[in-house]
């Protein structure tokens, strides 16, 4: 039987605002299937977002949802999680939201290892505001504000998250929707900060300008240009350099922030 998305949606909030060909819906569906797979209680699950195309997602899904200020989903989510650590807290954010205006909150949430799952809808551009370059726009690529190519170098979301201390870090793509769903599910069950770099596409403001073909071509590009980290071991360093690595990069067990916080409370009360 086909998966029943309606169980998790707010049908009255549709149609969504995403452009034709936008792959955000694939990430959204992966999140929904992941939640279903893990079996989270809808009423004990909070989805938090900031501002931007990706951040519209919480409006469409039937959980406790919080649409906040630009870049600050993780800060609001930290408040939610600390107030009631028994809640399942998931953040969704675009690359500009998560890593530019929200970059500070991003690294500190990773550092604290708080039990939140952050899904970055990484489409390399500020889509909603008209295709300005973002912290994940690759060097040299065109954006509306870099008509001769982007002089900046992009963040690698995986490296950044690991460097900052997140304990579950993975990268998936919208072509590989089933592995992406599995990663998100693992991220949810993981105790600690989980970051899923969900490579996504924006045909409207990024693809067209960079002549990346149709919306479908852009999704198929991931098939040919990404490789799982295990399979990558069989490639030569030159071959590997041309591919984007996907898979689970880190899955560590380290003390989680809310639990550590509770220990302090218990200790202080006991003293």
């Amino acid at each position: 039987m086909a998966f029943d998305y309606d169980k998790y949606m707010r049908p009255g909030k549709l149609p969504h605002i995403w452009c034709p060909g936008c792959a955000h819906g694939i990430v959204m569906k992966s999140i929904i299937r992941a939640i279903d797979r893990v079996g989270l209680d809808k009423d004990r699950t909070v989805i938090v977002s900031g501002i931007g195309c990706a951040s519209r997602m919480p409006g469409y899904v039937d959980f406790n949802t919080l649409h906040t200020t630009h870049g600050r989903s993780l800060a609001f989510a930290t408040g939610v999680k600390l107030a009631d650590p028994s809640l399942n807290v998931i953040c969704v954010a675009g690359d500009g939201d998560a890593l530019a205006i929200g970059g500070n909150h991003f690294i500190h949430a990773c550092r604290r290892n708080i039990d939140i799952t952050m899904v970055v809808f990484n489409n390399n551009i500020y889509g909603m505001t008209g295709g300005q370059f973002s912290p994940t726009t690759p060097h040299g690529k065109l954006a509306s504000t870099t008509p001769y190519g982007n002089p900046d170098y992009a963040f690698d979301v995986v490296e950044l998250s690991m460097g900052a201390g997140a304990t579950y870090v993975s990268r998936g793509t919208v072509y590989h929707a089933v592995p992406l769903e599995r990663q998100i599910a693992d991220g949810i069950t993981h105790k600690g900060m989980s970051v899923i770099d969900a490579l996504c596409t924006c045909p409207t403001t990024y693809g067209r300008r960079n002549k990346l073909g149709s919306a479908t071509d852009m999704i198929l590009w991931f098939k040919d240009n990404t490789v799982g980290i295990k399979a990558a071991e069989r490639l030569s360093p030159e071959e590997r350099a041309e591919k984007i690595l996907t898979g689970v990069f880190r899955q560590d067990i380290k003390p989680e922030y809310c639990e550590e916080y509770q220990k302090i409370i218990d200790m202080a009360k006991g003293a």
Binding site: A100, G130, Q132, P135, S144, P147, D152
Partner: peptide, 27 residues
Amino acid sequence: YTGIMMELSKLVANGELDAEFVHGEGE
């Protein structure tokens, strides 16, 4: 406001305005 920065980025890119154009990572 985006309309203002977009117009300016064009003017700078086209060489009509000799200025440094920078994206902040927030306001």
